[in-house]
């Protein structure tokens, strides 16, 4: 730890952290458009036995499956629900970038407050 002068180590740390953040932003902001939109493993299991039918009132589940017990999300109408900005088409990337920023602020802030501080 003391092998390097404080300044060099700090710069090295900062560039690593910024690089890590950039990767997260690119994944959420751009690569997310390539994500498979099929139901995930858990959804697949809860949808087993049902068929998803498009109706005038939206999608409905026909048959008998666990997912029929699922309730609509309390925040289904919130501005970033379902990783879209105000429900807009092709806004996944922007929603993802916002999510990365929110997460790094919440988690980074929490961990920074929680950290052990050097004794003065």
């Amino acid at each position: 730890m003391t092998a390097k002068t404080g300044d060099t180590a700090k710069t090295r740390n900062l560039s690593f952290l910024l690089g890590f953040l950039l990767v997260a932003l690119v994944l959420a902001g751009a690569v997310s458009y390539l994500a498979d939109s099929n139901p995930d493993g858990l959804d697949h299991a809860t949808l087993k036995g049902c068929e998803v039918v498009e109706t005038a009132g939206g999608e409905q589940l026909q048959g008998s499956c666990i997912a029929q017990n699922a309730k609509d999300h309390q925040f289904a109408g919130s501005p970033l629900a379902d990783y879209a900005v105000d429900g807009g088409e092709n806004t996944t990337g922007l929603a993802g970038v916002i999510g990365v920023v929110v997460t790094v602020v919440v988690a980074g802030g929490f961990f920074w407050l929680l950290r052990r501080r050097p004794k003065a």
């Binding site: 890590f20 997260a24 994944l27 099929n38 493993g41 697949h44 990365v100 790094v104 961990f111």
Partner: peptide, 30 residues
């Protein structure tokens, strides 16, 4: 500590980003 706390915040942000990236595992299942 001062060094690991920022990294931990970024790990959380990276997990958020990576959880968005559903990959195919079976026909019709991600």
């Amino acid at each position: 500590d001062d060094r690991t706390a920022p990294l931990a915040g970024l790990v959380a942000a990276f997990l958020f980003a990576t959880q968005m990236l559903n990959f195919p595992v079976l026909p019709g299942v991600s």
